[in-house]
């Protein structure tokens, strides 16, 4: 039978590399010698998930990808940080101001990345870092907003993230944030699309397992924006969310949508305690 011949051939063929590494590795993440909190006890609100240790996505990557993130000179995402440095000082818009006009140097942004998304009481809205950047551009500079997930925005996010590098993520989920947290959580556990998969199916129940060639992480966002070697560019949080939902054969939400803002707050809160690592490097 023809079929038998085929299996015999398959048995002869050198078996495909099966990695089966299983779980996160035990390496230590330092960036330019500074140790990051890349594994730590899960925050109290995660008790119901059964996850007791939260881990950076860095632990699930190959050694060479990991190494690129450990040294700023090897990190291709740092080029965008330099570009954003120029943008920081560039006067734009009708108010004839740059970021520097109001904030001085980017060091003034220390601590900012760690607490976003953050409730803005004045505007009465939950703001992601991207929304805040655009709010400054439109309302303080009189400049055009950046496209939500395009290069200028991810570069500016990267510049601001670097200022908080090493600081633990600490987004608030109480008070006015509670309703966003709940909405984000509902999205996280909803099984979307024709494949009927939720974020939790992959990143809570199966982190550490391989799904085809991909080593599933906990889907943490403490390293965003991430430089993806595959895309040769920085990837923004909402972009990643969109890709993951698309892969379930579902209709995605759009970047900057209220759904993704809520989901970002919820996912960020699952990383409360991990160091800000952005821009991190991923395959």
């Amino acid at each position: 039978m023809k079929y038998k011949a085929m299996t015999a051939l398959a048995a002869l063929a050198v078996s495909a590399p099966m990695l089966f590494a299983g779980g996160a590795d035990d390496d230590t993440l330092t960036i330019d010698g500074q140790e990051m909190i890349s594994k730590t006890a899960a925050p109290a609100h995660m008790e119901e998930t059964g996850i007791d240790t939260i881990m950076s996505g860095w632990h699930f990557r190959e050694d060479d990808t990991q190494a690129m993130q450990m040294d700023t000179f090897d990190n291709p995402g740092m080029i965008a940080v330099d570009q954003a440095m120029d943008a920081w000082n560039t006067v734009e818009g009708t108010a004839e101001k740059s970021c520097a006009s109001c904030h001085e140097g980017p060091e003034s942004m220390k601590g900012v990345r760690a607490v976003y998304p953050k409730w803005n009481a004045e505007a009465g809205e939950m703001r992601t870092l991207a929304m805040q950047i655009n709010d400054c551009r439109e309302n303080r500079m009189g400049a055009e907003p950046y496209a939500y997930d395009k290069a200028q925005m991810t570069a500016m996010e990267a510049l601001i993230s670097v200022q908080s590098r090493g600081m633990p993520v600490n987004v608030a989920i109480d008070g006015p944030a509670a309703e966003y947290y709940e909405k984000g959580k509902e999205i996280y556990y909803t099984r979307y699309g024709q494949l009927e998969l939720s974020c939790a199916n992959c990143h809570e129940e199966n982190y550490g397992n391989y799904i085809r060639a991909d080593h599933l992480s906990q889907g943490q966002i403490n390293g965003f924006p991430t430089y993806r070697l595959k895309n040769a560019g920085l990837v923004q949080t909402h972009n990643r969310f969109r890709g993951c939902i698309r892969d379930t054969r579902a209709e995605t939400f759009s970047v900057g949508s209220p759904e993704f803002v809520a989901l970002e707050l919820y996912v960020a809160s699952r990383g409360n305690g991990l160091s800000v690592e952005g821009p991190s490097v991923r395959q």
Partner: peptide
């Protein structure tokens, strides 16, 4: 039996 196709998962 399908080992000649690379990367099998463990989910």
């Amino acid at each position: 039996a399908l080992n000649d196709a690379p990367f099998h998962g463990e989910v």
